[in-house]
Write a protein that binds this DNA or RNA. Structure first.
Length: 145
DNA sequence: GCCAACGTTGGC
DNA sequence: GCCAACGTTGGC
């Protein structure tokens, strides 16, 4: 089964917010490659939750994809910063998923820890701006040890 | 706050 | 289709 990594700035939405809300729509993604990964997700897939733009940036928890192929409602909402005038209800441009909190890591794994434990070609290091990314199984297994 | 990386936009 | 300008991300 594929594993994913979802980034969020904790000052905007943190793992504790997810723990409190339990289930959230992962809306607001406006990058085509990230969108394509969201479209590939399947119910039951696990995703690591990553805190970005904080000190230290770190993997902090695990969540689970519970619902897929959802048109991101914010693209139709003129009041939303994620409103996209080029999208329409007939042809939504942005799709997303719903995720459920699974658990916080007993000890978060900082980016520097990740750098020391994982191959330097791991996609998080190479494509640092991508907010949704796949984690190859062999990498996931290294993290689970 | 700085800046490198890099995605997007728009003129041509 | 190219590419310069510009905006955003995110680590430091």
């Amino acid at each position: 089964m594929v594993r994913w990594l979802l980034k969020s700035e904790p000052q905007v939405f943190s793992i504790d917010d997810l723990a409190q809300q339990q289930t959230v729509l992962w809306d607001g993604v406006r990058n085509y490659q990230a969108r394509n990964y969201l479209q590939q997700m399947q119910p039951g897939d696990q995703a690591w939750f990553y805190h970005s733009s904080t000190t230290p940036p770190a993997l902090v928890g695990v969540c689970e994809v519970v619902e897929t192929c959802i048109p991101d409602p914010t693209q139709f909402d003129m009041a939303s910063p994620y409103y996209d005038p080029k999208s329409s209800a007939d042809a939504p441009r942005w799709w997303t998923v719903r995720v459920r909190f699974v658990h916080k890591l007993p000890k978060s794994i900082s980016l520097s820890d990740l750098r020391s434990r994982l191959p330097e070609d791991f996609v998080l290091f190479r494509r640092s701006r991508l907010s949704v990314l796949p984690i190859p199984l062999h990498i996931a297994q290294m993290l689970e040890k």
